[in-house]
Amino acid sequence: MLETIRNIDREIFVYLNSHHTEFWDPIMVLVSERFFWVPAYLALTIYLIYTFGRRGYMKLLMAVLAVGAADFISSRFFKPGFARLRPCHDPELSEVINIVSGCGGKFGFISSHAATTFALATFMVLVLPPRYLWFKIILITWAAVISYSRVYLGVHYPGDILAGALLGITMAWLFEKLYQKILQRYAYFRR
């Protein structure tokens, strides 16, 4: 059964990875680059603090903790624990796939990019008021595009992405619960 799942994951990966163009290659490299998003993170930070005051600081802290936990767990536990080669390091695949810009570390299960972006996006979806629906849609789309870019670039299987997204969503949910408990307990952050 596990072998069947791996084979399906490989087939989907090869199919998705084969659809690339010279136009999209540099765009996907940029989308996947963590430092490219620093201005957006700064803008989000300023907006949260300006709009929500003390609650904004707490939202920001919990978001950072959710992202940090997702990154730590994916990098320190899953990748070395499962030791699944990235597709670009797999000798059976490395000759037939498109590796656009380097390969990264040896192991790929689970995707830290998917875990961290879905942790941030999901946490914001959970803590922002309903009137921010348009922004919530943008955040989930952003996380999905970054996650897809990892398959496009040849460094993760779709299963790596799915598992990373699930980890990120789980961390977001846990830290949102902690955020709500802090708001209930400390009136200071409700202002």
Rank of each mutant, 00 (worst) to 15 (best):
E3D: 09
R6C: 04
N7M: 10
R10Y: 10
R10S: 08
R10A: 08
F13M: 08
Y15T: 01
H20K: 14
E22G: 15
P26I: 10
V29A: 11
L30I: 02
L30A: 10
V31W: 05
E33M: 02
W37S: 06
P39A: 07
L42Q: 04
L44S: 06
T45N: 04
I49R: 04
G53Q: 03
K59R: 12
L60Q: 05
L61W: 01
V64K: 00
L65Q: 07
G68L: 02
A69F: 03
A70T: 05
I73K: 11
S75F: 00
F78D: 07
R86Q: 05
P87D: 02
V96T: 12
V96Q: 07
V100Y: 09
V100H: 03
S101A: 15
G105K: 11
F107P: 05
G108A: 15
A115G: 12
F118K: 08
V125D: 14
R131H: 15
K136C: 13
K136L: 09
I137Y: 13
I137A: 15
A143T: 10
R150C: 12
R150A: 09
L153F: 13
V155D: 03
G159K: 14
I169E: 14
W173K: 15
K177T: 11
Q180C: 08
I182S: 03
R190A: 04
